[in-house]
């Protein structure tokens, strides 16, 4: 088994095929999209492949250590940040092929006009536990 992160970007991914911003969809199209995402997660729960899913607020703060006895420095949010993560889903699947298959399904979520968004999702493998037998 292998864990993968399905990463959804607000910004930073190549443009989707059906690239209409959500605020220009009809309410029904938004509902259909949300329903599709929920059904997808429910189906993965049913197969025992679902680990976690979270959505992130877009506004983030950068924080860094500023030396002994001083409070951390904060900066941002930066409106011009090129890469902005919207959320993720963690799956635990048999292998890479299955992960690609599922990412493809998720990318087919309906958007404007009820048509698939064809959104680019980033698929990242987790670094796993080393096997015992290596030689």
């Amino acid at each position: 088994m292998a864990k993968y992160l399905l990463l959804k970007h607000y910004r930073g991914a190549p443009a989707a095929v059906n690239d209409v911003p959500m605020e220009h969809w009809t309410p029904e199209e938004i509902s259909a999209h949300v329903q599709y995402m929920n059904d997808f997660a429910a189906r993965l729960q049913e197969t025992g492949e679902f680990v976690d899913a979270q959505a992130l607020a877009p506004g983030g703060t950068f924080v860094r250590y500023d030396g002994e006895g001083r409070p951390p420095v904060t900066d941002g949010p930066f409106a011009e940040t090129k890469d902005l993560v919207a959320g993720w889903m963690v799956i635990d699947v048999e292998g890479y092929e299955r992960a690609v298959e599922l990412a493809g399904e998720l990318s087919a979520a309906p958007g404007a006009g009820g048509k698939p968004i064809h959104e680019w999702l980033e698929l990242r493998p987790f670094l796993g536990t080393p096997p015992t037998i290596t030689e």
Partner: peptide, 9 residues
């Protein structure tokens, strides 16, 4: 993995 995932499997 979550307990629910193993229970499902």
């Amino acid at each position: 993995v979550p307990e629910a995932a193993v229970a499902q499997r």
